[in-house]
Structures are given as structure tokens and as C-alpha cells.
């Protein structure tokens, strides 16, 4: 490390703005473990707010032993007021709570797969007062609907794209989430939990009961489920939704432009 480099060490003088442009093409791990430790100029540039507006943690492997214990390190010095977070199995619940505590400005969260969505919503409700946009691909049941309504009553945009959506939960949400403006139900599997029989009824289209309750929405995004080719791929013959099979490209796409990552 103590090598003496020739005096033409031009990269030390690279203008800050160009460094930031270069760093925009890197992911968080490279930013934190690599460039932020090279020299003081690179370190300063790696903290530019532009690079931290959208935090994509999807490359952090879920099976890695060292799930970030201190996610707050990720945003040291961060002061942007619009923050978008993309999680993919990345954080344990405790870490997530800690993160939310630091990410007070969090406005948007994309979670392709969540095991404890209600606890996640509790953490958001407790700390993120500006939260208004959520994309999640886990089953949307009545418990989850309750926790959204109680923890994020100000939610404006919700994408349940490709998720299993319980009709009762959806009706509850539409009735109680007053600020909701945009709802994406594209390629989701609408089901109803019939109490007497104990099995699920699968809907092929949005029925009247639902469509009567969407008048306050600015935009409802759906697909023609019967003829939709994506739905055909997603749902197998037994009407099971294979959303967990979805590859990278699929969960990153969304019909809502601000949620396309």
C-alpha cells in the first residue's frame, strides 16, 4: 500500500461531478466497500445525495451470513428528502426496524418478497411519516390490509402486481385508505376466502363489488386476466400463483412509472 506512484496521478484530480456520474453506474456494495474508501475526494463523492435517493439492496444475498447489522451506515451523511428503497430479502426484521428509524424520509419502498409484511408496516408507521408509495409481492390478506390502513393511512400509490390478493382485504383497503390514488392489480390472482367451505375461490376478473368501490382512485391498473399472457405464465393449472418464480426482470417492471426500477 505504501507504493510511490509516479507524479501523474491524474485520477486524484478527477472533478467531483464526473466522479458522481461514474458512481451512478455502481451498486451499493461497490459504493460502500470500494470507492468510499479510496481517497477523501472519492469518499466525498460517494456520499453525494444523488447516489442515495434510490437504495437498491437487491444484490445483498438473502443466504449470506452477514445480513447488514448496521443498515444506518448506508446513509451516513444522507440528506435527500426523496428516498426510494428496494429490498429483496435483504434485511432481517430487526435491521429493518433500525433502518426505518434512520430512513425517516423514506417515501417509497419496493419489496419483491416479504415474510413479515405487517411488522414491516409497523416499522414504517412508527418512523416514516412521508411514506406514500409501496410495491410488494407477498400475499395481500386482511391482516396486511389492516396494517397498511393503520400504519400508512397516507399511502397514495400501491402496487400489488403479481400478488395473491384476497377480495375481502381489497374491499377493506378501498373503503378505508382514503388517500389512495393509484392501485396496480395487474397480473395478480384475485381470491376469496369462503368461510363455510374452507377453500379459495379464484376470480378471473375484477367483479362488480370491487369496481363499485374504486371511484375515488385516479388510476386502477388491471389486465384482462383471461386473455393476459403474463397471467397465463404466472398461474399454473391448479390456479397457484408462481410469483416466487419471477425473475429479476419481472419484479423490476411496473405499470406505475415511478415504481419501475
Amino acid at each position: 500500500m505504501k507504493k510511490n506512484y509516479p507524479t501523474i496521478t491524474t485520477w486524484n484530480d478527477m472533478p467531483y461531478d464526473i466522479l458522481v456520474k461514474i458512481f451512478m453506474a455502481l451498486d451499493i456494495l461497490d459504493l460502500v466497500t470500494g470507492v468510499s474508501r479510496v481517497c477523501s475526494l472519492w469518499r466525498a463523492a460517494s456520499y453525494d445525495a444523488v447516489l442515495w435517493r434510490r437504495i437498491d439492496l437487491s444484490m445483498v444475498r438473502p443466504d449470506s451470513v452477514d445480513i447488514p447489522a448496521r443498515p444506518e451506515d448506508l446513509i451516513e451523511g444522507e440528506s435527500s428528502n426523496r428516498l426510494m428503497l428496494i429490498l429483496k430479502n435483504a434485511l432481517k426484521l430487526k435491521a429493518l426496524e433500525k433502518a426505518m428509524m434512520c430512513w425517516k424520509d423514506l417515501e417509497s419502498l419496493t419489496v419483491p418478497c416479504a415474510y413479515a409484511p405487517c411488522s414491516m408496516m409497523r416499522a414504517i408507521g412508527a418512523f416514516c411519516k412521508n411514506f406514500c408509495e409501496l410495491k410488494i409481492m407477498c400475499p395481500f390478506d386482511i391482516d396486511f390490509a389492516h396494517s397498511i390502513v393503520s400504519q400508512a393511512p397516507q399511502l397514495k400509490v400501491l402496487s400489488l402486481r403479481c400478488a395473491v390478493v384476497f377480495k375481502e382485504a381489497l374491499l377493506y383497503l378501498l373503503e378505508n385508505l382514503k388517500h389512495l390514488k393509484v392501485l396496480n392489480l395487474t397480473h395478480c390472482l384475485l381470491v376469496s376466502d369462503t368461510q363455510e367451505a374452507g377453500f379459495l375461490v379464484v376470480y378471473r376478473e375484477i367483479d362488480e363489488e370491487i369496481s363499485e368501490n374504486v371511484s375515488h382512485l385516479k388510476q386502477l391498473l388491471t389486465c384482462k386476466k383471461i386473455s393476459c399472457s403474463m397471467c397465463k405464465i404466472a398461474v399454473d393449472q391448479e390456479d397457484f400463483l408462481k410469483w416466487y418464480d419471477y425473475d429479476e426482470g419481472n419484479w423490476r417492471v411496473d405499470e406505475i412509472p415511478s415504481l419501475t426500477v
Binding site: M1, I8, T9, I22, G34
Partner: peptide, 27 residues
């Protein structure tokens, strides 16, 4: 060009980045 530089940084350790770009640590 920025993409090209980024590709030279990706996955590298700090020392390797310094070596590649002939940067001297000023910490």
C-alpha cells in the same frame, strides 16, 4: 466513458481500485 470507468471499478477491492487508477490514499 463513465460506464467504462465503472466497469473497471466493479467488484474490486479498495487496494485494487487504487492500483488500477494510480490513486494514492490521502487518509
Amino acid at each position: 466513458l463513465t460506464e467504462k470507468v465503472a466497469s473497471m471499478i466493479r467488484g474490486k477491492k479498495v487496494e485494487e481500485i487504487r492500483e488500477t487508477f494510480k490513486i494514492k490514499s490521502d487518509f
